[in-house]
Design a protein around this nucleic acid. Structure first.
Length: 543
DNA sequence: GCCGTTTTCGGCCCGACTGTTTTCAGTCG
């Protein structure tokens, strides 16, 4: 079992306990346990099997050790099961609605029996909503608006949840492969589709037999649909989709005098169906990567690959909320074959992240300048874009850095005009070279900020500010559909991991690259595919 | 629930904002 599956169970325990109003410190312990389990450098399962002592891990004591062992043996733990018997999974989605916290969700459920988004909407529109403490007209309006803005997330699952479910599938069903929207690297999923052949499916979770597939409901509630198919190649293409791609392939086949059906590709007196390669090749094509099958196949440019990246430009250290030291980050970047690494710790306003005072930042800059590192280390900062568009350090401080990543963190739900003004003003600052996670969205949790993106991209292009493609799995920000639009305005991009540990710098990179590929960004437009000299010139270009 | 100890309890990161209050709880990051 993967660490993150164990971690999810503890996170859910923490959520449910919080809804019940348990001791906040106990709750924090579960969250902390989830965090350390996620970050643990090896599989907890292997560690335990080899006799490793869980209690030696910071944040894990007697009680949680016992629960981990229980989860490894039975797939779940008693406390989690008990909480699920008391409260439905759907409360966790209420928890994600901006403006609703655990106290309110608990009150809504235990006093009014409200457990779904629809019930909540109806309740808020009724007179009874005013009975809730701290609920006046403004608050009610705010939550109703959140519900509207969250609509696209409700009933959908994140990449993280889908990957967890997939890991459980792969451990159980030999030869199973993901298809569908997951394989195409869409950002949200209604379900996870799995192609397999003739293996018995025995999962302990609720099961539904459908006409052409079997559906299970995995932990976190995600439906996993299993397609039992022998002609693997052809079905991989069909089930990966999207439909428009299949239609295009069919057309191409008939233009070539062939016939493409779920039975296979009929070529003269042969029928091909066992692998994607043979089918695409017979049609005179290379296999089209699943993440760009939504595009017109005639117009797919060369796509960027992980190995094209020559450096990382957004990373944190233990000076703020990173887990690794500066040295560890540099060593990792060198190990990955990078030519440069930009250190961009948080600015003053990010209190919870331990944002650096100007003095501390200057200390870090000095350290970097005198460092003697094996690769080039750029002294940067991830600077908050304040509510009015000013930056979180004075220009005098910014001028001492090699470059600035400016990111919005707080107050993301302001109106569209105000947000646009805010971003445009930040782009006018001559030291800003990268606009960090522009929409501020957290997939499944916080909707993207509203802004006039055309104006933002136009300005970014004019000001020579690269737009970040942030690889954090819950961000993927800029989203691919906006990146396509930005490309049209001629902006540059920076594919970054926003790494908070050395390990993440490597692990997360592929997600940002997938976003860039999905948007078909030419590698040349991505500034961290450039060599150091060209990049340094770019850094100075705003002055 | 974890941790550390001048061991077996007491402390555990924080500050701002918001809409509600009439002195502050809940949410957020």
């Amino acid at each position: 079992m993967e660490n993150r599956v164990i971690a999810r169970i503890f996170d859910e325990i923490a959520d449910f306990l919080e809804i019940k109003g348990e001791n906040p410190f106990k709750i924090r312990s579960y969250r902390r346990a989830a965090e350390v389990i996620r970050a643990f450098p090896r599989r907890i399962e292997d560690y335990v099997r080899e006799g490793g002592d869980l209690k030696r891990i910071e944040g894990i004591g007697e009680a949680i050790e016992k629960k981990i062992k229980e989860i490894l043996e039975t797939g779940d733990c008693n406390l989690h099961r008990r909480l699920l018997a008391e409260m439905p999974y759907s409360l966790l989605s209420l928890l994600r609605i901006p403006g609703l916290g655990p106290k309110t969700v608990g009150l809504l459920y235990f006093s009014y029996g409200i457990k779904s988004v629809d019930e909540l909407r109806e309740f808020l529109k009724s007179e009874r909503a005013r009975e809730l403490p701290k609920f006046g007209p403004k608050k009610i309006e705010k939550v109703l608006r959140s519900l509207e803005r969250m609509r696209v997330y409700l009933g959908r699952f994140t990449l993280e949840e889908a990957e967890e479910a997939l890991s459980l599938v792969l451990e159980e069903v030999e030869g199973a492969e993901p298809v569908g929207s997951f394989r195409r690297f869409d950002e949200l999923f209604e379900d996870l589709d799995i192609l397999y052949f003739a293996k018995p499916l025995k999962f302990p979770w609720p099961r539904e037999e459908l006409e052409d597939r079997v559906r299970f409901f995995f932990p976190s509630g995600i439906p996993v649909e299993f397609f039992n198919r022998a002609r693997r190649g052809i079905w991989k293409i069909i089930l990966t989709g999207p439909r428009s791609h299949w239609e295009w392939l069919k057309e191409r086949s008939s233009r070539m005098g062939y016939r493409l059906t779920p039975e296979g590709l009929f070529v003269k007196n042969r029928v091909l169906h066992s692998s994607e390669e043979e089918i695409y090749h017979a049609l005179g094509l290379e296999v089209i990567p699943p993440e760009v099958r939504h595009l017109n196949p005639e117009k797919i440019p060369p796509l960027v690959e992980e190995r094209d990246l020559r450096g990382e430009l957004h990373s944190h250290t233990d000076w703020t909320d990173g887990r690794s030291t500066l040295d560890e980050m540099v060593r990792k970047a060198a190990e990955m074959g990078y030519a440069y690494l930009g250190i961009t710790d948080h600015s003053v306003s990010s209190k919870i992240a331990g944002g650096l005072s100007a003095e501390r930042l200057m200390e870090q800059v000095n350290l970097i300048r005198t460092g003697g590192f094996p690769i080039k280390v750029f002294a940067g900062a991830e600077v908050d874009i304040l509510e009015d568009g000013r930056l979180d350090y004075p220009d005098l401080v910014l001028s001492r850095l090699d470059y600035v990543v400016a990111s919005p963190h707080l107050k993301l739900d302001m109106g569209k005009e105000e947000m646009t003004r805010r971003l445009l003003r930040a782009l006018d600052n001559p030291y800003v070279r990268i606009l960090g996670h522009p929409t501020g969205r957290l997939l499944g949790k916080r909707p993207p900020a509203e802004a006039d993106w055309d104006e933002v991209f136009k300005k970014a292009a004019r000001r020579n500010v690269a737009i970040e493609i942030n690889s954090q799995i819950q961000r993927l920000d800029l989203p691919y559909y906006l990146a396509e639009k930005a490309l049209g305005y001629g902006v540059y991009f920076a594919v970054t991991t926003d790494a908070h540990s050395a390990a993440n710098m490597e692990r997360l990179r592929r997600y940002g690259i997938m976003v860039a590929r999905k948007a078909a960004l030419p590698p040349e437009r991505i500034i961290n595919t450039w060599d150091r000299e060209r990049l340094e010139k770019f850094f100075r270009s705003g002055l």
